[in-house]
Simulated assay, not measured.
Amino acid sequence: MAKNWDELEALQPTVLKMLKNSILKGRVAHAYLYEGMKGTGKKEVGFLLAKSIFCMEPGEGFKPCEACVNCKRINNGNHPDIHFVEPDGLSIKKAQIQELQEEFSKTGVESRKKLYMIMHADRMTNNAANSLLKFLEEPHAGTVAILMTEQAQQILPTILSRCQIIGFKPLSPKNMIKKLLDHGVNPQKAPLLAQLTNNWEEALELNENDWFAQAQKIVVKLYEVLKKSPLEAMVTLQENWFLHFKEKEQIDRGLDLLLLIFKDLLYIQLGKQDQIVYLGESSRLEQYALQTSGRRLTEQMAAILEAKRKLHANMNPQLLMEELVLKLQEGSSLV
């Protein structure tokens, strides 16, 4: 579902302000490079700019009306003067850029304006990039190019120098939660996902992932047995944790999930219940928060962060987790 101007402005306020000023002053660039992480709205903003340029009755002089023939065709992906290029397999080939050039050598079908978007512009072959460079050096009047990338450093400097570079910031947790809810994610799960990643596509994948659902249960169980006995915690490591968290990335994800439990306990102690992310466990967590101190929680969180550092320094994962469990249990009664 296409987002309107106001919805995208809430996600990327700086980007939309720049584009609004360009449109109102009649200074839309010949070429833009949208640069930022996956899931930050680059493609949606590309289509929004296209609608702003082609809209027959823009509101306030820049907002697409979303109702005219041009806006509707752009939303449906079938406007004859807007062309979208993405990798054919692993890369964008020279033939794809040449086809684009041929298309743009013709007059616009319905106006003198034309716009093209290139997704994953960093994946152009050298020949494709050189073809595009010639295209950018001699822009046709009324032509707008939008290149999109997560890896601006992979693009030829000569191409970068001909584009207005616009940086897309990662989504804030608040915006992330809203976007996840819009995509039908359970309101109980969205806050946790928003803390783990600011890439909403990755968050949606995690939401559907059985491994991740099981990971959360194992992490909560590990926390609960930590409060009981060292022996039981070691048994849980052997019988559950090590069988589920095998790869380095998986262990890292598990440590992040564990860290969020301790953060929630601290938020509860600080009276910030609105910031907790394990919403399904909130009543139990409120009980646990009474049984520890803020100082102890801070020490435990520091131990988890240290374990993450050791994991990336390639410490043996089994030793690392056993050492962490012992540290988390030291003085685990009320301090």
Results as ranks from 00 to 15, higher is better:
residue 3 K to T: 00
residue 4 N to D: 14
residue 12 Q to N: 06
residue 19 L to F: 10
residue 20 K to H: 04
residue 24 L to T: 11
residue 24 L to K: 15
residue 26 G to H: 04
residue 26 G to D: 09
residue 34 Y to M: 13
residue 36 G to H: 01
residue 41 G to I: 11
residue 43 K to H: 12
residue 44 E to G: 01
residue 44 E to P: 00
residue 46 G to I: 00
residue 48 L to Y: 03
residue 48 L to M: 12
residue 48 L to N: 02
residue 49 L to I: 03
residue 52 S to A: 14
residue 57 E to Y: 09
residue 61 G to L: 11
residue 61 G to R: 11
residue 64 P to N: 11
residue 65 C to P: 04
residue 67 A to P: 00
residue 68 C to A: 09
residue 71 C to F: 05
residue 73 R to K: 15
residue 76 N to R: 13
residue 77 G to R: 09
residue 85 V to M: 05
residue 87 P to T: 10
residue 87 P to K: 06
residue 89 G to C: 08
residue 95 A to L: 09
residue 103 E to Y: 10
residue 104 F to Y: 10
residue 106 K to W: 11
residue 112 R to L: 11
residue 114 K to I: 02
residue 114 K to Q: 15
residue 116 Y to G: 01
residue 118 I to P: 01
residue 120 H to W: 04
residue 121 A to F: 07
residue 125 T to R: 07
residue 126 N to Y: 03
residue 128 A to H: 03
residue 129 A to Q: 13
residue 132 L to P: 06
residue 135 F to I: 03
residue 137 E to I: 08
residue 137 E to Y: 03
residue 138 E to Q: 11
residue 143 T to K: 01
residue 143 T to N: 10
residue 145 A to V: 06
residue 146 I to Q: 02
residue 147 L to V: 12
residue 150 E to T: 15
residue 150 E to W: 02
residue 152 A to L: 02
residue 157 P to T: 10
residue 159 I to K: 04
residue 159 I to W: 08
residue 159 I to N: 07
residue 160 L to W: 00
residue 160 L to T: 01
residue 161 S to Y: 02
residue 167 G to H: 13
residue 167 G to E: 12
residue 170 P to R: 13
residue 171 L to F: 05
residue 174 K to F: 05
residue 178 K to I: 12
residue 179 K to E: 14
residue 183 H to P: 02
residue 186 N to G: 09
residue 187 P to E: 13
residue 190 A to I: 05
residue 194 A to Y: 01
residue 194 A to V: 03
residue 195 Q to W: 00
residue 197 T to V: 11
residue 201 E to Q: 15
residue 205 E to V: 08
residue 207 N to Q: 13
residue 208 E to M: 12
residue 209 N to Q: 07
residue 212 F to P: 09
residue 218 I to G: 02
residue 220 V to I: 13
residue 220 V to F: 10
residue 220 V to L: 12
residue 222 L to G: 04
residue 222 L to F: 14
residue 225 V to M: 08
residue 226 L to H: 11
residue 235 V to L: 11
residue 238 Q to G: 07
residue 240 N to V: 02
residue 240 N to H: 14
residue 244 H to P: 06
residue 244 H to R: 05
residue 245 F to Y: 03
residue 245 F to A: 02
residue 245 F to S: 00
residue 246 K to L: 07
residue 248 K to V: 07
residue 249 E to D: 15
residue 254 G to E: 03
residue 257 L to M: 07
residue 258 L to M: 12
residue 260 L to W: 08
residue 264 D to S: 03
residue 264 D to E: 07
residue 265 L to R: 11
residue 270 L to T: 07
residue 272 K to S: 15
residue 275 Q to D: 06
residue 275 Q to P: 00
residue 277 V to M: 09
residue 285 L to T: 07
residue 288 Y to I: 05
residue 299 E to I: 06
residue 300 Q to W: 05
residue 304 I to W: 05
residue 306 E to Y: 14
residue 317 P to R: 05
residue 326 L to T: 08
residue 327 K to M: 07
residue 328 L to A: 04
residue 330 E to H: 13
